[in-house]
Each structure stands twice: as C-alpha cells, then as structure tokens.
C-alpha cells in the first residue's frame, strides 16, 4: 500500500491555478521531496494532502483514508511541521509538547521528543529563548508528538546557517531510519538530493519531472563529465572515447581532456579506459538537480 496517493489534484483561486492536475504516489518509508521555487505550488500541494486546504478537484488518500471524508483519522496518523515555528510564546517547550500530545489518541512523552532532537536541556525554555535552529528542531519534535506514520516537513531548513542545516539533515535521516514516511518540501537542491529517495520538481503548479534522485540527474543533457590530465591521446584511444561521449580539450590545452557522458554505464566504461592510460589527474563531475532545473525551466532555483 502506498502511504499517499495523489490523483489529478488541482487548486484554483479566482486569478490563479496554484496546483494544476498533479498526480503522484509516495511509498511507505520513503522520503519524498517536492522541489521548486517560491510560488511553485509545493506548500499548497502539501496542505491539500494534510487536509488544510480543500482541493478544487482531484483525489488524495493518506494511509488508505480519503482526505475529504476521513480527515479525522488522517490527522491522528500524520505529523505536520510548518514553515515557521507556530507555537505559543508563553508556554515552555515541554508544556507545548504536552498540550499538543493531549490532542491525539496516542502521544510520546515530551522528554523523549526533546531528547530525540537534542533539546533536553531546553525543556523549561520558552520558544522565544531558542535559537533559529533549535526552534526548527523543536517544530520537528512537535510534529512527532503523536508518533505519526507520515511526517510533513515544509522547508525545515529555510533560514538556517550551514551547521544548523546539517544537524537538521541528520535529524531527518534519523526519523527516516525509524521507518517513517517523510514528505519534504524544499528549495535547496542539495538537501533534496541528500535526503530524498525520489524528488518531484514543481514549476507553475505542475510537476515537471518526478523520479529517483540519481535518475533525475541522468535526465540532464550531460549528466557526467570526466576531466583528465594526460599526454596527447592516441588516435585509436580518441576514437574509443568519442564512441562513449563528447570528447573536447579543456581550455584549448592538448593535455587536458573533458569527456561528457550520458549514462552511468558509459561512465563506468570510460573510467576503465582512461584509468588504463594512468592519468596524472582525473575528476568526475556529476550534474546536479540545479543543472536539471535550469534545463527544464530556463531559470535558476533561488533560495
């Protein structure tokens, strides 16, 4: 059974189609990333799955429950982390976790949740006394208060410094290791590549591409580029390499070669060939989701 099934989901506003005929499934235990720039429709899609927004058309089932008719059952089984730290500022973090835990049929102890996110020393702090990174970790802890089967993380690392972002990535990986299904929206490509098993890239309300991260990368025009420093290549070697991909010299220098390759298989073959020539230096550059995003949308993904 899929954890989430989305079929032809559309959300229209008077002057805008925020989400346009989107369909996808998320498997149990999978980390599913939704990538796109601001206004692409990521959050609206997420909120329709969570039952916060009513779809104009289309169907959503979460853990076998229809979001239109069985929202109560769905809410018991999902955990939602919003873009900002949406919590009462006059309650301590422990009090907030206890309060929210009381809303569900089952809940985890506040101390266990705080330990999970490394905030046990902040148990008596108010939310405003936490740093930005700590607030984000707390909001993830709060989304886990009912020990949910699916966790929705909406841009969890936005606005955080690199160190805080890495700590949060580790936390998300830990949550995945517990067997939870995670839906993650982000506009950080690096984050999506690192954390997600599959990624859907959204633009103007539509999913323009959806696949496993490594397969998405292979959809770029030149997914792999080998750069090697070698003495002048023999003509036979050149012909062999040209059969695998596009061979060029780097910066007009005869002893620096670049070989652009389209598939992993061709990359493997080319590496064996070049390694046999004992190059002074060899590097492999893999295309990124950013490259794919630029190719697909003609624009850079800005954070």
């Amino acid at each position: 059974m899929n954890a989430i099934e989305v079929t032809n989901l559309t959300k229209e506003y008077p002057h805008l189609t925020a989400v346009n005929n989107v369909s996808f499934n998320v498997a149990v235990g999978e980390v599913f990333g939704i990538l796109g720039e601001n206004g692409a429709g990521k959050t609206t899609t997420l909120e329709m799955i969570e039952g916060l927004r009513r779809p104009t058309s289309g169907e959503v089932t979460v853990l076998g429950h229809n979001v239109r008719t069985e929202l109560g059952a769905i809410k018991q089984k999902i955990g939602v982390q919003l873009q900002s730290s949406a919590y009462y500022k006059y309650l301590t973090v422990t009090e907030i976790l206890r309060l929210f835990g009381g809303f569900y049929e089952k809940s985890l102890p506040a101390a266990q949740l705080l330990k999970m996110v490394g905030l046990e020393s902040k148990a008596k702090s108010l939310i405003g006394q936490l740093s930005g990174g700590q607030q984000q970790r707390f909001s993830i802890a709060a989304s886990l208060v009912n020990d949910p089967e699916i966790v929705f993380l909406d841009e969890p690392t936005t606005g955080l410094d690199p160190n805080a972002r890495r700590r949060l990535w580790k936390l998300i990986t830990d949550i995945k290791a517990k067997g939870k299904t995670i839906i993650l929206t982000t506009h950080y490509l690096e984050e999506a590549e690192l954390l997600a098993d599959r990624v859907a890239i959204m633009d103007k309300g539509k999913i323009i591409v959806l696949d496993q991260t490594h397969k998405l990368v292979e959809q770029t025009k030149v997914p792999f580029v080998i750069t090697a420093h070698l003495p002048k290549l023999a003509e036979s070697t050149q012909k062999k390499l040209q059969k695998l991909g596009t061979l060029t010299t780097r910066g007009g220098k005869d002893d620096w070669f670049e070989l652009g390759l389209k598939t992993q298989a061709k990359l493997n073959t080319a590496l064996i060939e070049i390694a046999a020539l004992k190059p002074d230096s060899i590097t492999v550059k893999r295309a990124t989701l950013e490259d794919l995003f630029i190719e697909l949308t003609g624009k850079k993904l800005t954070s």
């Binding site: 916060l52 109560g72 939602v80 919003l82 949406a86 919590y87 500022k89 809303f103």
Partner: peptide, 13 residues
Amino acid sequence: EDQILKRMTTTPV
C-alpha cells in the same frame, strides 16, 4: 500571523 491557528488545524482538535 504566527501560524498558530494553522498549526491547530493540523491536529484533530
């Protein structure tokens, strides 16, 4: 503004 109302709607309350 603080999204507390929205957060509430994600719970079964």
